[in-house]
């Protein structure tokens, strides 16, 4: 391995840092795209089992080739461009939705030291990328020049910005206790504490002292990605597919992939902010990437479980939950954490 790296380094010469970065990026993106593909299968399987069905089982053994078949089918489908659409923006929308969902992964720490860009503004970068993702939705809804698409985009934008407030407040609480915007440092901060010294690391993670914020972040994450039960954006019975109604073929596939990539991103973020990232829950097991993957899978499973369980919220209920329940709750908890940290009982020294 060492020798191989050295040979490559001499071969590329001054361009080596760029090539090495590109290799690392592909090392993140390719497994991610594969995860996205199989998350779609997992969703259909899990919901199938929850409804006492089998789920897809025809393509390949146990239906394992189903995502590949879906992808191939979409590649060969015509990309219909409505005559009234703004052609340029029409294609910018889906590209933007998917590109931002990918680009946010640049700062995700996978394990101790395994992070592409260990930047101190990691949290800000993440927030920026997820916010730009909203533009993809608005642009596509506007460019489609269709009523359904337009209303879907308006709903989606209003819902996403509303829950971004709650998400931001929850993050402020995390920042207060970890004193850093660097994602790796946020994980390191959770490795300390009275419980961690006793070998019960999972009680030292942020989810316990910040329990209401953990729930707010999780629920906001579901609303932010427009997943059930907050999926009025594409409520089939009201506005069909919302902002993607005019899209077909690969242009549609990009929205689909972007949504699932965002789901995985929100799950990883919840694991890092509140569930200790790659830290092991108990003292006698080593910290490793496996823990992060396990926590992420668990939260992804919650996403699917909620979709199979809860009926869809009404739009006014969604807005009320975001503005009238989460915002006051977050403000209160922020003050509570502030007072707690000022008091002698401060556990984050």
């Amino acid at each position: 391995m060492e020798i191989l790296l050295q040979t490559l380094q001499t071969f590329f010469g001054p361009a080596w840092p760029l090539v090495w970065t590109l290799l690392k990026i592909f090392g993140i993106i390719l497994p991610l795209v594969l995860c996205v593909a199989y998350l779609t299968l997992a969703e259909r399987k899990v919901i199938g089992w929850m409804q006492v069905r089998i789920g897809p089982n025809r393509v390949g053994p146990l239906g394992l080739l189903q995502p590949i078949a879906d992808g191939l089918k979409l590649v060969f489908k015509e990309i219909v461009v409505p005559t009234k659409a703004s052609t340029g923006l029409y294609f910018v929308g889906p590209a933007m939705a998917f590109a931002t969902a990918l680009a946010a992964w640049a700062v995700v720490p996978f394990s101790e030291g395994y992070v592409l860009a260990n930047i101190d503004a990691g949290v800000l970068y993440l927030l920026a990328m997820t916010s730009i993702g909203i533009y993809g939705v608005i642009i596509s809804g506007w460019a489609s020049n269709s009523k359904y698409a337009f209303y879907g985009a308006m709903r989606s934008a209003a819902q996403m910005v509303s829950y971004e407030i709650a998400m931001g407040f929850a993050l402020v609480c995390v920042l207060m206790v970890s004193a850093s915007l660097n994602l790796s440092d946020i994980v390191h901060g959770q490795a300390k504490g009275a419980f961690a010294e006793m070998g019960l690391g999972f009680l030292s993670w942020n989810w316990l002292p910040l329990l209401p914020m953990f729930l707010v972040y999780l629920i906001s994450g579901i609303a932010e990605t427009n997943r059930a039960p907050f999926d009025v954006v594409e409520g089939e019975s009201e506005i069909v597919a919302g902002h993607m109604v005019e899209y077909s073929g690969m242009a549609y596939a990009l929205f689909f992939l972007g949504e699932y990539a965002n789901m995985i991103l929100v799950s990883v973020m919840t694991s890092i902010f509140f569930l200790g990232g790659w830290l092991s829950p108990v003292g006698f097991l080593p910290d490793s990437f496996v823990w992060l993957a396990g926590k992420t899978c668990f939260i992804l499973f919650l996403f699917l479980w909620f979709r199979a369980t809860f009926p869809r919220y009404r739009y006014d209920q969604i807005m009320r939950l975001g503005w009238k329940v989460f915002v006051p709750l977050c403000m209160f908890w922020l003050l509570f954490i502030g007072v707690w940290m000022m008091s002698p009982l401060n556990i984050w020294k």
Binding site: T21, I25, F26, I29, A99, A117, I119
Partner: peptide, 20 residues
């Protein structure tokens, strides 16, 4: 430290346009 982020954004855009 921000150089990989820039490269990642560019790769992300390429990946966003390529399927279409």
């Amino acid at each position: 430290n921000y150089f990989p982020v820039l490269v990642f954004i560019i790769v992300g855009i390429v990946f966003g346009c390529m399927p279409m």
